[in-house]
Amino acid sequence: MQSYSVLVVAAILFVLGLLGVLTRRNIIFILISIEIMLNAAGVAFVAAGARWGQPDGQVMFLFILAMAASEVSVGLALVMQVYHQHKTLDVSKLNNLKDDIEV
């Protein structure tokens, strides 16, 4: 039962992160929001692991951490390039690639 309440917390965290992705314009903040979501997933894994009394959940959490770190590092490298080229971190300015139908 306890693990379920942790799961609820994780879910709330996840949705918060999602809301952050939706509302934020700055790429860095979006990355942070995604981190929150990833961590929420991690929490859920830990909760699940706890429920079944297995270490697998925690193992997974470690993998998530590693992966999140690598993702963020690549992400930040790209952010720097974006800033170089666009002089902004506003994600809505990044729309050179889109459909333009010429009839």
């Binding site: 996840f14 997933a41 894994f45 079944w52 959940g57």
Partner: peptide
Amino acid sequence: LFGMALIYM
């Protein structure tokens, strides 16, 4: 990940 966690749960 979240989905996996749920299924694991």
